[in-house]
Computed example of a mutant assay.
Amino acid sequence: MLEVIATLPRGPVFLAGETLCCNVTFTNSSADNQSAEEVLAWSSVQIICQCTVSESRVQLPRTTALSTEEASTTGCETSFVPNKGERGLTVLCTKPKILFCDLKLAPGATRTYQYEEVIPTDAPPSFRGQAVKYSYKVIVGTQRLEKTTKMVRVPFRVLVLFGLNDISVYNETEEIAPSNPFLNNSRKENSVLDVGLQEVISLYFIFIFNTDSYNIANGRGKVARFLLFKQAYKLGEDIVGMFDFDVGTVPCVQYSVTLQSEEKISEECRRKPGQGTAITSYVKHQEMCLNTLRTHMNIPIPLTATPGFMTDIVCQRWRLHFEFVTSLDKVDGPESVPADCEEHQWQGANTLNVETMVWDLPIKVFPTNPIHASSVTLMKTSALINMANG
Rank of each mutant, 00 (worst) to 15 (best):
I313Y: 05
D312F: 01
T292M: 10
L293S: 13
K272M: 11
H296C: 11
N291K: 02
R294D: 00
K264P: 03
I301S: 05
T277C: 11
C269H: 15
P300I: 05
R271P: 03
P307Q: 06
P273G: 03
K284P: 03
G276P: 00
G276N: 00
T292E: 10
L303F: 14
T280Y: 00
E263V: 11
T295E: 09
V314S: 08
T277N: 02
K284G: 03
H285G: 04
H285V: 04
R270L: 12
T295D: 12
F309E: 11
E263H: 03
I301M: 04
E263Q: 07
I299Y: 01
N291H: 15
C269G: 09
Q286W: 00
L293K: 12
Q286A: 13
N291F: 15
I301Q: 04
P307H: 06
R271A: 14
T304N: 06
M297T: 03
T277G: 04
D312A: 08
A278Y: 02
Y282V: 04
A305Q: 03
S281A: 15
E268N: 13
G308D: 14
H296M: 11
Q275N: 09
M288I: 11
E267K: 10
I265V: 15
T311V: 09
C289S: 14
I313A: 08
E263G: 05
T280F: 02
A305G: 07
Q275D: 11
N298L: 13
R294E: 07
T306E: 01
L290V: 06
M288F: 11
C289V: 15
E287P: 04
I301A: 03
L290M: 13
R271H: 13
V283T: 10
E267T: 09
C269E: 10
E287G: 03
K264R: 15
M297I: 11
Q286V: 08
G308T: 02
T292S: 09
C289M: 06
D312C: 02
N291T: 01
D312E: 14
Q275V: 11
T295V: 05
G274S: 10
P273N: 08
N291L: 12
S266G: 07
H296V: 01
L290P: 05
N298P: 01
E268I: 03
I301Y: 00
M297S: 06
D312P: 02
Q275A: 13
G274M: 10
E287K: 14
K264Y: 04
M310V: 13
T277I: 15
I299D: 02
A305E: 07
K264S: 15
L293G: 09
G276K: 00
G276L: 07
S266E: 14
K264Q: 14
T292Y: 06
D312L: 04
N291E: 07
R271F: 14
L290Y: 02
P302Y: 02
T306L: 02
M310Y: 00
T295S: 10
Q286C: 11
K272V: 05
S281G: 06
E263C: 11
K272R: 14
K272A: 12
A278G: 02
N298K: 13
L290G: 07
H296P: 00
R270H: 05
V314F: 08
G276Q: 00
R271S: 13
L303T: 04
